[in-house]
Design a protein around this nucleic acid. Structure first.
Length: 883
RNA sequence: GGAGGAUUAGCUCAGCGGGAGAGCGCUUGCCUUACAAGCAAGAUGUCACAAGUUCAAUCCUUGUAUCCUCCACCA
C-alpha cells in the first residue's frame, strides 16, 4: 500500500462544508429502503424570525447524534426539519422594520403586510437552513416543512373544524391576557410574571347614605371606574352589618353594593376588596358568580375609553393612575400609600405589561384532550428522559385551563370561520365557502383573527408527514420515536402535541421525550440577546469546527442538567478532534509498503486482544448509554477509548513491532491498527461526523461512506477479561517505574535496568517476560529481567511494589536515599490507614454475617494487599539504608 | 403556597451502598517515529450541614442552610 497524506494540521474548514455537500448529493439523509423498524424524529421547528442560538445547537446536535446512530444501525431513518412562522414574534419584526420607515402595519393594509412578512420569512429561513447545514445536521431536506405551507395550513383547518364539530372549540366574551403593544390576546402560558415594585393605595369609599366610609386597598386605582361592587369575606364578622349597603364610587356618581365572596382574604389589607370584573381575573370570576356588570375601560391600544370620566380618556393606564391618585387625594379619599412589590404579567414576546382585557375570543376546551394525554402517559405510551419531568407534565395536564387560540394579528393561519353579512349565520368550514347555506347570500366575511402559532405547531409530528391524508410517510414514519426538546416548552408544545395526536389520531406522537437542559453562560445566566452573553454557534464552528461543537455539547449534556459554557469550553472537542487527526496521520504514514492481512485471533498478542476487548467495552457502553439518552456517558466512553486506550497504550505499544518486527509482523500490526481505526471511525461517527467521514474515506480498508456504514456493536466473542487484567498489570508496572523515575527526576534518555520479581511462575510473570521489550520501552529501561525465584541480585536497586510483583530499579547514582525513605514512609502511612478501615470491617461480626460474600472476600484480599505493601515498604526502607 | 433541581478538586461538572473521578487550571520533567492543541509524573477534597436507616453512607430517609428553575396566588 501507498502512504496516504493527511494535512499537517487539523482544520475543519478544509472539509466540513465539502463533506456536507457530498452527503446531500448522495441523498444520505433520506430514509433507506430497509424493512427494519423505522426511526423517525421531527425537529422542533425554530422560529423563522431569529437566528439559531446555542440552545438550538445543543438540541440539534443531540438529535443528529441519535439519528446518525439509528441510521447506522440499519433502520430507515427520517429526521424532518422545518421552521415555525412564530406569529407574534415575526409580526413584531416586520412592524419594527416599518416603524423605522415611519409606517404602521395599517398603512400597508393586511395583504401587503402579509406579503412583506413572507419576504422576511424567506430571508430568515435561508439563514437558519444554512446554519443547520453548517452544524452538520443530517435531516432530510426533501422533507422540510413550514408551519404555514399549504399542507400544514390544510392540517390546521382540519384540526380546527374537527374540534369545532366535536364541540371542543367555542367563541365567547371573556377576560383574556392582552398585550396592548402587540395588540393581541395571549394564552395564559404566554404571560411571564415578574416581580416589580409598586404601591398599594388605601382608598375611602363613602357609604351612599353618608353614614361614613369604608377603606379598600388597590394597586391599580385607575381601574376604579370599572368597579361594580366591593366584596368582603362572608365569615368576616367585622363587616357582617354592612353587607348589602351601598357605596358611592369616588370621582363618579355611581353606586355600588357591598357583597360577600369567600375568595376575599380577611387578612390582607382591610379585608375589603373592590371588584373590577373587566380588569382582574379574580374579580371577573367573582363578578360571574354575582351577576355583576363588567365595565371595560380600555381601548385595544391600552388607552382609557369612554367609560371613564372625560378628563382621563385617551390616557395610558400608568399616566391616568397618577392623575386619579392626585384627584383622590384632593377629594380626601386617599388614606395612605405603601410600597408593595408584586408580580405583574408581561408579554413573553415584547415584554409589555399585560392587561386583563374583556374581549371576544376563540377557545379550545382542554379537559377532555388533557384526559387522553394523561392516559397515554399512564399507559406508558410516552416516557420522559429524565423521568422527573413527568411530574411537571401530569401537574399541568391536571390543572389545565381552556386555551385561548385567537390572536388579533395578521401573520398566521386565518381562523376558518365566516359570517354571512346578510343573515349573520356563522360558517365553520374546511374550504372557503362562497355562499351562505341558510340564505344563500354571497356576501360573506372571514373572521379577522388568526390562530395562535402553537395551534399549528401542536400538529407538527403528523402534519409534516402529510396528515390529514393517509400518506406513505404517515404509514411508514408515524408515530415518531424520539422528541428532543428543552424543558421551557413542555407546556407550550410537547404537552399539546400529545393532546393533538391522541385526539386526532388516537396515538401518542412519539414514545421517548428527551428533555435537555438550557444552555447558560459560565455564570449560570440564561443566554439572551439583552444580556449579550450569548455564544453564536456559527462563531464556534468558525473557530473550532462543527465536530468540536457537537462533541463538546454532547460531552457536557448530562441528563437534563443545564449546560454552562463559554467559548473556551469548546476546546475540549477541538483538542479531541485534533488528537484523532494526528493519530490517523501517523498511522497512515506507516502503511507505506505494507499489506493488509486477515489476522487470526489465535495469532494475536495479548495487547492485540486487549485493544479489541477495550473497543468492545466502549461499544457496549455507548449502546447502553444511547438507549437511555445518556449522551455524556457515550461521549466519555469514546474519548477515553480513543485517547487513553488506543493512542496512549496501543499505538505506543505497536511502535516496537512497527520498527523492529519482521515484514510479516509489520503487516499484522498495520492490519490491526487499520482495523481498529476503521471501527473507531464508525464508532465515533454520530458524535464527530465530519472528521470521521474525512478520515474514513482515506482508509485503505474502508467501504463506502462512514455515514452509511454499520455501527459497531458489542460482541461477546471479543470480550477478553484475561487480556484486560494482564494489560492492566503491565500498565501498573509501567506507571510504578515511571513515577519512581519522575520522582527522582531521572531524564528519559537515561535507560536503567529493571528487575521485576514475582512470587513464582505466575501467568503475569509469563506475560511480563513475553512483553519484556514493551515494558522496557514504557519504562525507559535498558533491560527487563523477570525474576520468578528471587535469585536476582537486587542490591543497590530502588524498590517499588505493585499488585503481585516488585520492581527494582537500578538508580544508584541518581538516588536520594532520605527523600526516598520519606516517600516510602508516606506510603506506609497511607496503607496503614487503608488497612485500618478494612480491619474495622473484618473484625465486625455483623459485617461478616450480613455483607455479600464477594464483599467479604474483597475486604480480605484488600487486607492482604495492604499488609503486603506495608511489609514491602518496610523492607525497602531497610534495603535503601543498607546501600 | 406547591413542585423540581443544585451543593463533590481553584473552575466547569461526571459518578456511586463497599478503597473519592474527568476536563481545564496548577507544579515538575520531557520537542520520545503523529499530536507542545502533545507525552510523562504530581499536588489539591471534613463529597454543604445535622440526625437517622444499614454490617457499611459521598450515595438511601428526614430535617437545616444556601442557590436556581417552574407552577399557582398576590386587592
Amino acid at each position: 500500500m501507498k502512504a496516504v497524506e493527511l494535512a499537517r494540521n487539523y482544520d475543519p474548514k478544509d472539509f466540513e462544508e465539502r463533506i456536507y455537500e457530498e452527503w446531500k448529493a448522495k441523498k444520505e439523509f433520506a430514509p433507506s429502503d430497509s424493512d427494519k423498524e423505522h426511526f423517525s424524529v421531527v425537529m422542533p421547528p425554530p422560529n423563522v424570525t431569529g437566528i439559531l442560538h446555542m440552545g438550538h445547537a445543543l438540541n440539534n446536535s443531540l438529535q443528529d447524534i441519535i439519528v446518525r446512530y439509528y441510521r447506522m444501525l440499519g433502520r430507515p431513518t427520517l429526521w424532518v426539519p422545518g421552521t415555525d412562522h412564530a406569529g407574534i414574534a415575526t409580526q413584531n419584526v416586520v412592524e419594527r422594520q416599518l416603524q423605522k420607515e415611519g409606517l404602521r402595519r395599517q398603512d400597508l393594509g393586511r395583504e401587503k403586510f402579509v406579503e412583506r412578512t413572507w419576504l422576511v420569512k424567506e430571508k430568515h429561513h435561508d439563514i437558519i437552513k444554512k446554519q443547520l447545514e453548517k452544524m452538520g445536521c443530517s435531516c432530510d431536506w426533501d422533507h422540510e416543512r413550514f408551519t404555514m405551507d399549504e399542507g400544514l395550513s390544510r392540517a390546521v383547518r382540519e384540526a380546527f373544524v374537527t374540534l369545532y364539530e366535536r364541540g371542543l372549540i367555542y367563541k365567547g366574551k371573556y377576560l383574556v391576557n392582552y398585550c396592548p403593544k402587540c395588540g393581541t390576546a395571549l394564552a395564559d402560558d404566554e404571560v411571564e410574571y415578574e416581580n416589580v415594585p409598586g404601591k398599594l393605595y388605601d382608598v375611602r369609599y363613602p357609604y351612599a347614605d353618608g353614614s361614613g366610609y369604608i377603606t379598600v386597598a388597590t394597586t391599580r386605582p385607575e381601574t376604579m371606574f370599572g368597579d361594580t361592587a366591593v366584596a368582603v369575606n362572608p365569615a368576616d364578622e367585622r363587616y357582617t352589618a354592612v353587607v348589602g349597603k351601598e357605596l358611592l364610587l369616588p370621582l363618579t356618581d355611581r353606586r355600588i353594593p357591598i357583597i360577600t365572596d369567600s375568595f376575599v382574604d380577611m387578612e390582607f389589607g382591610t379585608g375589603m376588596v373592590k371588584i373590577t370584573p373587566a380588569h382582574d381575573p379574580n374579580d371577573w370570576e367573582c363578578g360571574r358568580r354575582h351577576n355583576l356588570e363588567a365595565i371595560n375601560l380600555l381601548n385595544p391600544d391600552g388607552t382609557l375609553n369612554d367609560n371613564v370620566p372625560v378628563k382621563y380618556r385617551g390616557m395610558q393606564a400608568e399616566e391616568a393612575r397618577k392623575l386619579v391618585v392626585e384627584d383622590l387625594e384632593k377629594g380626601g379619599y386617599l388614606v395612605k400609600v405603601t410600597d408593595h412589590s408584586h408580580d405583574v404579567g408581561h408579554c413573553y414576546r415584547c415584554h409589555t405589561t399585560v392587561e386583563p382585557y374583556l374581549s371576544e375570543q376563540w377557545f379550545v376546551s382542554m379537559k377532555s384532550l388533557a384526559d387522553k394525554a394523561l392516559q397515554a402517559w399512564r399507559d406508558g405510551d410516552i416516557v420522559f428522559y429524565p423521568k422527573r419531568w413527568e411530574n411537571t407534565y401530569v401537574h399541568w395536564m391536571e390543572t389545565i385551563r381552556d386555551w385561548c387560540i385567537s390572536r388579533q394579528l395578521w401573520w398566521g393561519h386565518r381562523i376558518p370561520v365566516w359570517y354571512c353579512n346578510d343573515c349573520g349565520k356563522m360558517i365553520v368550514s374546511r374550504t372557503d365557502p362562497d355562499e351562505c347555506p341558510d340564505c344563500h347570500s354571497h356576501s360573506l366575511r372571514q373572521d379577522e383573527d388568526v390562530l395562535d402559532t402553537w395551534f399549528s405547531s401542536w400538529l407538527w409530528p403528523f402534519s409534516t408527514l402529510g396528515w390529514p391524508d393517509r400518506t406513505p410517510d404517515m404509514e411508514r414514519f408515524f408515530p415518531t420515536n424520539t422528541l428532543v426538546s428543552a424543558y421551557d416548552i413542555i407546556f407550550f408544545w410537547i404537552s399539546r402535541m400529545i393532546m393533538a395526536s391522541e385526539e386526532f389520531i388516537g396515538k401518542a406522537p412519539f414514545h421517548d421525550i428527551v428533555i435537555t437542559g438550557l444552555v447558560r453562560d459560565i455564570q449560570g445566566r440564561k443566554m439572551s440577546k439583552s444580556l449579550g452573553n450569548g455564544i453564536d454557534p456559527i462563531e464556534v464552528i468558525d473557530r473550532y469546527g462543527a465536530d468540536a461543537m457537537k462533541f463538546t455539547l454532547c460531552y457536557l449534556a448530562a441528563q437534563g442538567q443545564d449546560v454552562m459554557i463559554d467559548m473556551d469550553s469548546f476546546r475540549l472537542g477541538s483538542r479531541f478532534a485534533n488528537k484523532i487527526w494526528n493519530a490517523t496521520r501517523y498511522l497512515l504514514m506507516n502503511i507505506e509498503g505494507r499489506n493488509l492481512v486477515e489476522v487470526e485471533r489465535s495469532s494475536m498478542t495479548v495487547m492485540d486482544r486487549w485493544i479489541y476487548s477495550r473497543f468492545n467495552d466502549a461499544a457496549r457502553t455507548i449502546s447502553e448509554a444511547m438507549a437511555g439518552y445518556r449522551f455524556n456517558e457515550a461521549a466519555q466512553a469514546i474519548y477515553s477509548f480513543f485517547w487513553n486506550d488506543f493512542c496512549d497504550w496501543y499505538i505506543e505499544a505497536s511502535k516496537g513491532r512497527l520498527l523492529h518486527g519482521s515484514d510479516a509482523e509489520k503487516d499484522v500490526q498495520v492490519s490491526i491498527l487499520m482495523d481498529i481505526l476503521e471501527k473507531s471511525m464508525r464508532l465515533m461517527h454520530p458524535f464527530l461526523s465530519f472528521i470521521t467521514e474525512e478520515i474514513y474515506q482515506k482508509l485503505p480498508n474502508h467501504k463506502g461512506d462512514v455515514i452509511s456504514s454499520s455501527y459497531p456493536l458489542y460482541d461477546a466473542a471479543l470480550s477478553d477479561p484475561e487480556a484486560d487484567s494482564l494489560v492492566s498489570l503491565l500498565q501498573e508496572a509501567a506507571r510504578l517505574v515511571r513515577a519512581a523515575r519522575a520522582g527522582l527526576q531521572i531524564a528519559p534518555e537515561k535507560k536503567l535496568r529493571v528487575v521485576i520479581r514475582t512470587a513464582g511462575r505466575t501467568p503475569s510473570a509469563a506475560f511480563m517476560e513475553e512483553e519484556a521489550g514493551l515494558l522496557a520501552s514504557f519504562m525507559s529501561a535498558s533491560s527487563i529481567t523477570v525474576d520468578t525465584d528471587g535469585s536476582e541480585d537486587i542490591k543497590g536497586a530502588m524498590p517499588a511494589t505493585g499488585p503481585g510483583f516488585e520492581a527494582f530499579i537500578f538508580v544508584r547514582e541518581a538516588i536520594d536515599v532520605e527523600q526516598e525513605v520519606k516517600r516510602l514512609e508516606g506510603e506506609i502511612k497511607k496503607n496503614e490507614a487503608l488497612l485500618e478501615g478494612t480491619m474495622k470491617k473484618l473484625s465486625n461480626d455483623n459485617f461478616l454475617s450480613h455483607a455479600r460474600a464477594e464483599a467479604v472476600e474483597k475486604e480480605k484480599s484488600k487486607k492482604a494487599e495492604f499488609e503486603d505493601k506495608i511489609q514491602k515498604a518496610r523492607e525497602h526502607i531497610e534495603l535503601l539504608r543498607s546501600f
